[in-house]
Design a protein around this nucleic acid. Structure first.
Lengths: 223, 223
DNA sequence: ATTGACGAAATTGTCAACAATATCGTCAGC
DNA sequence: GCTGACGATATTGTTGACAATTTCGTCAAT
C-alpha cells in the first residue's frame, strides 16, 4: 500500500502540508538532519510548490525544521541541553495551567478527568504502556485546555519534544509507568481539594521527573 | 523628512520587513484592525511582493497580524482577557527564568544587574519614567538571557503585549514606578542571597502587579 | 434618501518559467 | 589511489503574469 498522501481530490492547503510533515517528524519517519526536498513532498502530497514552501517556512517558525539558503529544509536536531530547556519551559507553563485549572475548572470537566483517570488505571493493570502513552497525552491536554488559557495552550503546542522514540519508550519502564500514574492520582486529589498551589508544584515535579526518565533512557540507549 | 524606508541599496529581506512592520505595530503607528496592504508596504520598504507576503505570514505565526483569505493582513486586536492570559504565561516563564538565573548566574552578570539597578534608582530620583521604561525592559531581558534558557527566551519574545500605549504609560504613575523599583531591589537581594524560589515568587508577583496596573490604566482611559 | 444591481478597480492567491546556487559524477594529473 | 578542476544535473530562490475575490463607485428604481 502506498502512502495515501491525499484522499480528497482537492489539492492540500499549506497548513495541511505542514501537518503532514510535522506528523512524519514526530513519528520518526523523518529523522533529525534529514533533508526535506521540495519535489519529494510535492510528489507524495500532490501539493503545489508554493504550498510546500509555505509549509516549510511555517515549520521553520515552529523550530521543527531548519532552512539554509539554497540548501533547503532539513529536520532540526535538538541537543539534550535544548530538550532540558524545553522541559523547563513546560514545567513553568503546564504548572501555571494546572494552577488555573484547579482554581477555575467546572465540575463537568473534573468528571471527565476522573473518567480518564479510571482508564489510565486500567492501563496500569493491563500493562498497556502504548495505550497509557496516548491517554497520558489526552490527560495533559485536558488540563491545559481546561485552564482556559489559550495563549499558554498555543505555546505548549510548540514545546513538544521532537524526539518521538524516547517519549513512547518512557512508559515501557514499568516503574516509571507506576510512578507517573501515582502522580496523576495525587494531582487529581489536589484538584478536587482545590489546592491550586499544591497541584502546580506536583505538576512541575511530574514533568521534571519525566525529563529525568528521558535522560536515563537516552544514556542507556547510547551505552 | 520621509520614512527612511531603507538606507542600504540592497533590497530588504523577509525578516527585515517583518521587523519593520512589527516595530510599527509596537509603536502604535499601525493600530489594531488596520489593514496592511501589500502594495503600501512594498512602496514604503522597497521590498518585493514575495518578501512582503513572507513577512506577513511570519507575523501571522507570531500572532501579531491576522490574515483572511482574499482580504489580506490586518493588525490583530487583543481583548483584555487575552492580555491577561499573556501575563499569566509571562509570570510562569519569566518566573522560571528568574529561578534559573538565581541558581546559575555568574558574578559578572550579577554585577551588570547591580549597575543597571543603580541607573534605575537614578531614574526614580529624577522622575524619568520614559528612561525607566527602557531600562526596565533591559533589566528583564538581562534576567531572561542570563538564565541560559534560550527556549524560554524565544517564547517570551512572542509574549510582548502589542498595545504599546499602555506599557509606557504605566510608569507615568509615580506610585507604580516606586513599587516597581522596590520590587527590583528586593529581587536583586534575593538573587544575591541565592534564594531561587523566593526570587521566582517575587518575579511572579511583580509581573502580576504590572497587569493590575495595566488594567487600572485601561479602565481609567475609557472613563 | 435608501436600497440593490452591476461593472470597474483594487487587492490578494496561485502558478509556471527563469535565475542562482549547490551537488554529484567524471576525469586528468600526480 | 588520491586530489582537485570542471561540466552536468538537481535543487532552491525570485520574479512576473494571470486568476479569483473583494471593494468601491455609479446609477436606476422605489
Amino acid at each position: 500500500m502506498q502512502e495515501t498522501p491525499d484522499q480528497t481530490p482537492r489539492p492540500p492547503t499549506g497548513p495541511e502540508i505542514a501537518d503532514w510533515v510535522r506528523q512524519r517528524i514526530r513519528t520518526g519517519r523523518f529523522v533529525p538532519g534529514q533533508r526535506l526536498v521540495e519535489v519529494d513532498i510535492i510528489r507524495q502530497t500532490g501539493a503545489s510548490r508554493s504550498k510546500v514552501r509555505e509549509a516549510l517556512k511555517r515549520l521553520e517558525g515552529e523550530g521543527l525544521v531548519e532552512i539554509e539558503e539554497f540548501r533547503g529544509a532539513s529536520v532540526r536536531s535538538s541537543t539534550l541541553d535544548e530538550v532540558r530547556q524545553i522541559y523547563r519551559a513546560r514545567m513553568a507553563l503546564e504548572g501555571m495551567a494546572m494552577h488555573d485549572f484547579t482554581a477555575n475548572a467546572s465540575p463537568a470537566i473534573i468528571e471527565r478527568l476522573q473518567a480518564l483517570q479510571t482508564q489510565l488505571d486500567a492501563c496500569v493493570e493491563d500493562r498497556a504502556p502504548d495505550r497509557f502513552g496516548r491517554l497520558n497525552n489526552e490527560w495533559h491536554r485536558l488540563i491545559v485546555d481546561g485552564s482556559g488559557n489559550k495563549v499558554i495552550a498555543d505555546h505548549l503546542q510548540r514545546l513538544n519534544v521532537p524526539i518521538h522514540r524516547l517519549l513512547f519508550e518512557s512508559f515501557y519502564d514499568d516503574a516509571r509507568l507506576n510512578i507517573a500514574n501515582a502522580d496523576h492520582r495525587a494531582m487529581l486529589a489536589l484538584i478536587v481539594a482545590g489546592d491550586a498551589e499544591g497541584a502546580e508544584r506536583a505538576m512541575r515535579k511530574h514533568i521534571g521527573d519525566g525529563f529525568e526518565t528521558l535522560v536515563r533512557i537516552e544514556s542507556e540507549f547510547y551505552n
